[in-house]
Lab assay of single mutants.
Amino acid sequence: LVRYRTISKIPQITLNFVDLKGDPFLASPTSDREIIAPKIKERTHNVTEKVTQVLSLGADVLPEYKLQAPRIHRWTILHYSPFKAVWDWLILLLVIYTAVFTPYSAAFLLKETEEGPPATECGYACQPLAVVDLIVDIMFIVDILINFRTTYVNANEEVVSHPGRIAVHYFKGWFLIDMVAAIPFDLLIFGSGSEELIGLLKTARLLRLVRVARKLDRYSEYGAAVLFLLMCTFALIAHWLACIWYAIGNMEQPHMDSRIGWLHNLGDQIGKPYNSSGLGGPSIKDKYVTALYFTFSSLTSVGFGNVSPNTNSEKIFSICVMLIGSLMYASIFGNVSAIIQRLYSGTARYHTQMLRVREFIRFHQIPNPLRQRLEEYFQHAWSYTNGIDMNAVLKGFPECLQADICLHLNRSLLQHCKPFRGATKGCLRALAMKFKTTHAPPGDTLVHAGDLLTALYFISRGSIEILRGDVVVAILGKNDIFGEPLNLYARPGKSNGDVRALTYCDLHKIHR
């Protein structure tokens, strides 16, 4: 019993810090008490220290592992850092350059016999395009090294910054494609005289377009951006097909006994025919423009016929181009109408809503002055909100995010209106959640004399007048207030005048 009563005193000691020596009952000389009392004092002292730490809000209350900052290894790049964003855009520009100039170089340097010394005699450094290609190869190699040090988000939505895990993730992902696209074939085969082989191998750079397509997928929600990307894709495919079309004609031209190829026909049409040795002929500019003209006309199913396939190889390629053109029509131009419709969806919704308003007016036989006010209010409210119901949009977000959005939407009023000066951010967040926005066209009466005042109004834009009878008592403008002081009276009061809008007004109100 003594032991039980001794232990039962522990909660009292913990909360009230009572010393055991003052209790005459606990001072009985028993061996059990002498053993338990020192333990009680020690526990009391420890609990006292913990309570003191909690009340003082000291940093040592938290466990040590929670006080440590997340460790980022040296030379690790955050995937959302500004440097990584700028670097990704730079790589994107280099990939676009590669997609345009690599097929052009591979096709127009394929057994090209233009006048001038061969590239091997001039030297590697004197070729501007080769120098640019070398810079692109170096940048792609540097990009691989950067990807080995860039964080990523795993399946659990955690940012991984450990170098080993980053390397394994990159090896399992895009490393092989990036490595093949970054191989400097110019340096590996330079001086061997195989410019045709170098041009063909350099087309491996186009593998990076797969990554670019995935990154550009984030802009699919913007109709104008999608339309622009589709047109660029169409032009890029036409450019690639033009390079292939020229390569076919250029390879067949020296081996044909009869002059029936499209390059021969082009030379005869523009007065620059090929001679018996295969030299001469149109310039590279004429060849490229004509090839691009043929691919565009074939892809769009126009086909004027002034550039036509004559050999079997050219006919087979033309059939493939027609098939590609039909697929592009289905996948690209078939979506253009939907994209344009999405661009004008706001206008369509406006006309639909206006039609419903006019049908309501016609069905209920609203008189002319009231009908005009109804239409003007709808037009003004639509121009202010673009038909978007803010309350319906915010309803799907958590309250903390709703408060931040409301604070942002009402920031101008909260910053410049005098009653809100000096208020804490928590108070402003709470008030912003209570605001209701209303609009009024010129001549609209917001409050009639004798109406119950259940709200306090803040003028965000425009001006109003307060009338008693036919006498203008006051004219209020931006950041002015009218209405009933909230919670100042037990019952809502009545208006002693009319409140009429002089201009288009936007008002925020808080109800009782």
Rank of each mutant, 00 (worst) to 15 (best):
S301L: 10
A348W: 15
F294D: 01
D268N: 14
A381W: 14
K66T: 05
C126I: 01
K202V: 01
H448R: 10
T385N: 15
W262F: 01
E314R: 01
S81N: 04
N154T: 11
L94C: 15
S277C: 04
T347W: 14
T290G: 01
A225Q: 06
S301P: 04
A430L: 12
G278V: 01
N156Y: 08
I166D: 01
Q341K: 07
G271K: 04
N335P: 13
R373Y: 04
L145G: 05
I144N: 01
F294T: 01
G116E: 05
S301E: 01
S301G: 14
Q341Y: 04
P254C: 15
N306I: 01
L207E: 01
D143N: 03
G443H: 06
C417S: 13
F333N: 04
P273D: 01
V86P: 01
I91E: 01
T233S: 14
N265G: 01
I332C: 06
G116H: 11
G280R: 03
N156M: 13
P282M: 03
T438E: 08
K436A: 09
L266T: 01
Y219F: 14
S81W: 07
F101W: 15
K172R: 13
A119H: 13
F435E: 02
I77W: 01
K111A: 08
K425Q: 11
H408T: 01
A182C: 13
R358S: 10
L109G: 13
L94H: 03
C406R: 08
P309C: 01
D404R: 02
L323M: 15
K287F: 08
L355P: 01
S192D: 09
Y384D: 11
V447K: 01
E114M: 13
W75Q: 01
K66W: 08
I166T: 04
T295E: 01
H351Y: 13
A291R: 01
C406P: 01
I183Y: 03
T203C: 14
S331E: 01
W245C: 01
V289I: 15
E196I: 11
T233P: 01
H408G: 02
K111H: 15
I135T: 04
A238V: 03
N386G: 12
T445F: 13
L188C: 10
N154K: 08
L110D: 15
E359D: 04
I198W: 11
T437V: 11
F234I: 01
I91W: 01
S326V: 07
V136R: 11
N312I: 03
L394F: 13
T347E: 12
R74W: 04
R165G: 05
T352Y: 13
V336L: 04
C243L: 01
D257C: 01
I339Y: 03
V289K: 01
L93G: 07
